[in-house]
Design a binder for these strands. Structure first.
Lengths: 135, 135
DNA sequence: CAGTTAATACTAAAACTTTCGAAGATCCAA
DNA sequence: TTGGATCTTCGAAAGTTTTAGTATTAACTG
């Protein structure tokens, strides 16, 4: 017998739907479906089920407008990205985020601009961290 | 009816086992089990099943030594990390690895040491990029 | 108000994941 | 060489994920 898994992370299809909802801000099942890839051929009831599951798992909330539900993410994409990366870092990179970055910049050719952007952000962060330490 | 999912990525338990095997280089079911967290209470047959599944999915190969199988990863951790990050980048960061790094360094939980490591890495990478540009 | 349209709720299937027991195979020691 | 220990293989149970059909319910339309 297995114990029930706590759903901290989105499944593949759930992520697909959440991504659309993040883009939309909020929307109905039809709205979300309309944003799926055109080749994605999914019955309306399937999409509705996914949205219902997302609500059960507390990833989204819904309010009723007329007879339809309007869904809204309860979790920002930023927060989810952070949570997810923390887990990846732990499970696949021995808890060393630097190793993760190493692998990433090793593989993909980031533009100089992107690298600069990241460095700026990094230095801002390091300054903050130092300030906190100096108190 | 769903179409068969091609298993490009490891499941949670599979990753747990592969991580041990990567640490070991190669090993038997017992070897891998011995490296699991002490509180991980798993029957030997369960572990054997996981290893067999990993072999079916072509993540590992095995050679027979006496009556036991000695397993070896067919996929390096580096390659898997790269493959995985590419997917994460795509699915959760709009295909912009820079956004991924940005999110990572923006995480308040990151230590100063980790930030330093990342900066060192980044500067090395930027130097390389500049060198290439100067040619 | 009755009929059509469209949304939701319920249910269930098929595939996948995780776990482990039963049965048979193999090796070693006495 | 045989008994015990240990290994492998097979199958299956229980939970999760993904998909969609059916039934019900709510809104609009003539």
């Amino acid at each position: 017998m297995r114990k029930k898994k706590k759903s901290e992370f989105l499944t593949e299809v759930e992520l697909e739907f959440m991504t659309r909802l993040w883009e939309l801000g909020e929307g109905t099942v039809r709205d979300v479906m309309a944003k799926l890839a055109p080749e994605r051929d999914l019955a309306y009831t399937s999409a509705a089920t996914i949205m219902r599951i997302l609500e059960q798992k507390n990833f989204v909330s819904s309010k009723k407008e007329g007879k339809t539900h309007v869904y809204k993410a309860l979790l920002t994409k930023d927060v989810y990205q952070t949570r997810f990366l923390k887990d990846v870092s732990e499970k696949l990179f021995d808890n060393t985020p630097a190793a993760l970055v190493a692998r990433l910049v090793d593989d993909d050719d980031l533009s100089i601009e992107a690298l600069n952007e990241i460095r700026t952000l990094l230095e801002g962060r390091m300054k903050d961290a130092n300030d906190r330490n100096d108190i």
